[in-house]
Design a protein around this nucleic acid. Structure first.
Length: 871
RNA sequence: GCCGGCGUGGCGGAACGGUAGACGCAACGGACUUAAAAUCCGUUGAGGGCAACCUCGUGCGGGUUCGAAUCCCGCCGCCGGUACCA
């Protein structure tokens, strides 16, 4: 293909227009208050998930989502919206730091090189970003505000009455008033334990290979998501964010969002709300009680033993002397067991008896208390009542240790008995006052019974855990926190940004001490206080970047109130109008960002409850072999190569033509050539070759009246592409453009006005080619078109032009197609039926039978229903 | 296991419950060319017929409907998420 003449000179055209957009600031977006800003226009904020600028460069998967949003942004500009369409870099992250550890090259150097390459690649595809708003999470001018938001979290607590965050000083004042005698130190400790950002000594996911702790979300199947290294649990002092307080709102407020059901389900699942009851069991001969959470209080009569998590604080107290040694041994074994093993052996139940016995509150029965690692300290109360007849895990455990199984719920219409496990709903038996009740009723009844006696209450639990927020890394935001002995406090705002010290050895210490701890003169303050040496996780910067884009140059505030109100307010409940990105962020990024946003909302810093009103997940772009693209498979497509061979417009168009945006689909080199040829056909509608190198305005172009048929195709194209673009059905929009071009190609003399109208429609999709052709036509036919398309109004279509005089009506017999007849549009039923009766085919097919019923759909079809066999 | 999504020609994919297969790719035929490429014009779900046409066809089995790729029930297969969450 190298020697072949190009379909059109895309290389010159694309470079020319990209330079033009850059030098004339075409896509610079004004903020309210700036000269020239037009407040009368509606706003539209269309956002991509900004990339981590990896060393591998831009991926065709990035290009898919970015092209989609770019088409929407360009379309909206032509519809008269003020469009915010920004781009930036989520540039803190492990790869740059790992590279630094290996080579000694500072992560900043690596990061700068990578971002420069990404920026260059994106510009070569012609995305209409407002580059003046570009942000970089590693820029002190940016992370200053990430640190500032952390201080807001640190300075707040969750007020359960208001179901919202409030400043911590309010809590302090209230506590002081209520507990006048309390010492300052105790008061402080009490308040500190309630901050949204707090310190906890908790079992964490420690990854020795990476030398850092990881969030639950960063651990998959017992190994780190990055690198796949073994992760073990060990107790460490860490910063945590109290996201669990927001579990209810994060789940409930998902409802009104215009997000794919699958993503909502994923988040709901992650938050994991369960409704049930908490029940308190007394202990035989011991003052303590065991509280459990259950979703099946109706099975309480079937509880035959209890299980505490091995780490449960009560274990120590209640274990009988005879069992002490075994319990100790078991607890140690579990504690040292790496997570990987704990998962591998998941189906093998293990545990030991404590010797203690608990009293079942409903029947006074004494049942043994065990410890077992299938009960997790981190969920519910860390203790369960075991009902082997109606819970599979309990059933397995009971079988392994010979514990009794007592059926108390029977499936409707079956006899009681049997030693199997039944987890469904049914009717209670052997359950005292619950006997005969169907499951839902029994749940209600027993909960009420427990509540009346102060033995339990209805309860809601969430799977969601608090967010482990500190990392033992160099390449992240330092915490704006200083320690005075055991006391911590936030830095004053005036000291932000807190910059990390420069370093030449980036290795973690291996024992949980972060690299920053090595820089003594940074850590140690003159007054004896010490800086926090952990850094924030990579998620921090992406939790609020969409806000910064509204006002990225602001040096006084994270975003001005005016800019936030304008760009984030608006349609329905507000926020980003369209957010496009991959499913890999369905739970982590999207949940964290929603959490921060809600805190900022509670504190009055933003005006919307949710950040992202409408979310779309683009599907995976697979290799030509239908497998995920990967170096090892050798099926990776580099966007640069595609741009070099076929041009940016072809790359854009192909990625949109492959199939529905949200669906995964394989790459096809042939497919790229197909759209490349299509763009060549568009070019040749207006241009013809002149000599070896040049192109001239085509002699077949003229300022002539289009035929009604051609005009109809044009208007249909304007209508369909407009509608499909709005619905993000880009593949069918492009198909319609192809239909138009096929029609136009057949015209002997091509009406130039029809062509210029079409170029508006093509413009969001293939901006370079359309601008170039329009500019050339503008020169050749002055007065017929504006000089530039980017902001020129989207053309209008006319219903009258679309109207057809004659329609084809389908004639069916019993739903089967038998004939088609042509009739004037809008023909009444009687006229249509007359023609149907005249049809030979229909007469033959009816063979004398009379229609029992006639279904008539105007301008579409007639269905004759005839009785069974023959009349 | 559970939760989501998807099964339509040789391939990517179109089809408000109303003509299944738009558009593109591939393939085949023709025009142009000394020739090829490029381009332009056709054909192309399967089976049958010289033909006009006929029959069958949207993973499988049922159902609702005048009419189902589309809605409902039950399976099968693939992809993604999740996993002792009481």
């Amino acid at each position: 293909m190298s020697q072949r003449r190009k379909q059109y000179p895309f290389d010159q055209i694309e470079a020319k227009w990209q330079a033009h957009w850059e030098t004339s600031g075409t896509f610079r977006t004004l903020n309210p208050g700036e000269p020239g800003f037009d407040p009368a226009r509606p706003k539209y904020y269309v956002l991509d998930m900004f990339p981590y600028p990896s060393g591998a460069g831009l991926h065709v998967g990035h290009v898919e989502g970015y092209t989609a949003t770019d088409i929407v942004a360009r379309h909206r500009r032509k519809l008269g919206y003020n469009v915010l369409h920004p781009m930036g870099w989520d540039a803190f992250g492990l790869p740059a730091e790992q590279y630094a550890i290996r080579t000694g090259q500072h992560p900043r150097t690596t990061t700068e090189g990578n971002t420069a390459r990404f920026r260059e690649q994106l510009k070569r595809i012609g995305f209409s970003y407002d580059w003046s708003r570009e942000i970089d999470t590693t820029d002190p001018g940016y992370f200053r505000w990430t640190q500032w938001i952390f201080l807001q979290l640190y300075g707040s607590y969750f007020d359960t009455e208001a179901n919202a965050a409030r400043p911590v000083h309010e809590l302090t004042a209230r506590r002081r008033a209520g507990h006048p005698g309390e010492s300052e130190a105790d008061l402080r400790a009490w308040v500190d334990a309630r901050r949204l950002a707090y310190i906890a000594e908790a079992p964490v996911n420690w990854c020795p290979r990476l030398g850092t702790v990881l969030a639950n979300e960063e651990v998959k199947d017992g190994v780190s998501e990055v690198g796949g290294f073994a992760v073990e649990r060990r107790p460490m002092r860490q910063w945590m964010l109290r996201i669990t307080d927001y579990a209810e709102r994060l789940a409930d407020e998902l409802e009104d969002l215009d997000w794919p059901d699958g993503i909502k389900a994923l988040q709901r699942n992650w938050i994991g709300r369960s409704e049930g009851a908490s029940v308190r069991f007394a202990l035989e001969g011991h003052p303590a009680t065991i509280e459990v959470f259950t979703t099946r209080p109706d099975t309480l009569f079937g509880a035959t033993y209890m299980v505490l998590a091995p780490e449960h604080p009560l274990v120590e107290e209640i274990t009988g002397p005879a069992k002490r040694a075994a319990v100790e041994e078991y607890r140690e074994r579990v504690a040292s067991k790496p997570d990987l093993e704990r998962i591998d052996l998941s189906r093998e139940k293990s545990g030991v008896s404590t010797g203690a016995r608990a009293i079942n509150p409903v029947n006074g029965e004494a049942i043994p208390v065990w410890i077992a690692d299938y009960v997790l300290m981190s969920y519910g109360t860390g203790a369960i009542m075991a009902v082997p007849a109606h819970d599979e895990r309990d059933f397995e455990f009971a079988r392994a240790f010979g514990l009794p199984v007592r059926q108390v719920v029977q499936p409707a219409g079956e006899e009681p008995g049997g030693n199997a496990c039944f987890v469904g709903e049914g009717v209670n038996v052997r359950s005292g006052f619950l006997d005969g009740m169907p499951t839902p009723e029994a749940k209600e009844a027993v909960t009420l019974w427990l509540e009346e006696r102060g033995l339990g209450a209805r309860a809601v639990k969430y799977k969601l855990r608090d967010w482990l927020f500190s990392r033992q890394r160099y390449w992240g935001e330092p915490f704006p926190i200083v320690w005075d002995g055991e006391r911590h406090e936030g830095l004053p705002e005036s000291e932000l940004p807190l910059l990390p010290p420069d370093l030449d050895d980036f290795r973690p210490t291996g024992e949980g001490e972060p690299p920053l701890a090595r820089v003594k003169d940074w850590v140690q303050l003159p007054d004896g206080r010490r800086r926090e040496t952990n850094t924030m996780p990579q998620w921090a910067g992406s939790c609020w970047y969409y806000l910064r884009f509204c006002d990225s140059g602001n040096g006084d505030r994270f975003v001005s109130e005016e800019a936030e109100r304008y760009w984030m307010g608006g349609e329905r409940s507000g926020g980003v109008d369209l957010y496009v990105g991959g499913t890999e962020h369905a739970v982590l990024h999207l949940l964290y960002a929603r959490f921060w946003h809600k805190v900022l909302f509670d504190l009055g810093f933003v005006g919307t409850r949710e950040p992202f009103q409408r979310l779309i997940n683009q599907g995976l772009v697979l290799g030509a072999d239908n497998q995920k693209m990967s170096k090892s498979r050798g099926n990776v497509v580099n966007p640069d190569d595609v741009v070099a061979a076929f041009g940016a417009d072809s790359l854009r168009l192909y990625e949109m033509f492959m199939g529905p945006l949200e669906q995964g689909k394989p790459w096809s080199e042939r497919g790229v050539e197909g759209v490349y040829r299509f763009l060549g056909r568009v070019w040749r509608l207006a241009m013809e070759p002149e000599g070896e190198e040049h192109w001239a305005i085509s002699a077949r172009l003229g300022d002539v009246e289009p035929s009604p048929a051609l005009l109809r195709v044009l208007h249909e194209t304007i209508r369909k592409v407009g509608e499909d673009t709005e619905s993000l059905f880009f593949n069918t929009a492009i198909a319609q453009m192809m239909i138009f071009v096929n029609a136009m190609t057949g015209e002997r003399i091509r009406p130039v006005r029809v062509l210029t109208s079409f170029l508006h429609v093509l413009n969001p999709y293939a901006p370079h080619l359309s601008e170039e052709l329009n500019a050339r036509l503008h020169t050749a036919f002055p007065g017929l078109s504006g000089a530039e398309l980017a902001y020129a109004p989207w053309p209008e279509w006319d219903e009258a032009v679309l109207a057809v005089s004659e329609v084809e009506i389908v004639v069916q017999i019993n739903g089967k197609l038998r004939d088609r007849i042509r009739l004037p549009a809008g023909s009444p039923e009687a006229a249509v039926l007359e023609r149907v009766r005249a049809s030979e085919k229909i007469g033959a097919a009816l063979s004398g039978r009379a229609p029992r019923k006639v279904v008539f759909v105007p301008d579409r079809l007639v269905n004759l229903v005839v009785g069974g066999e023959k009349a």
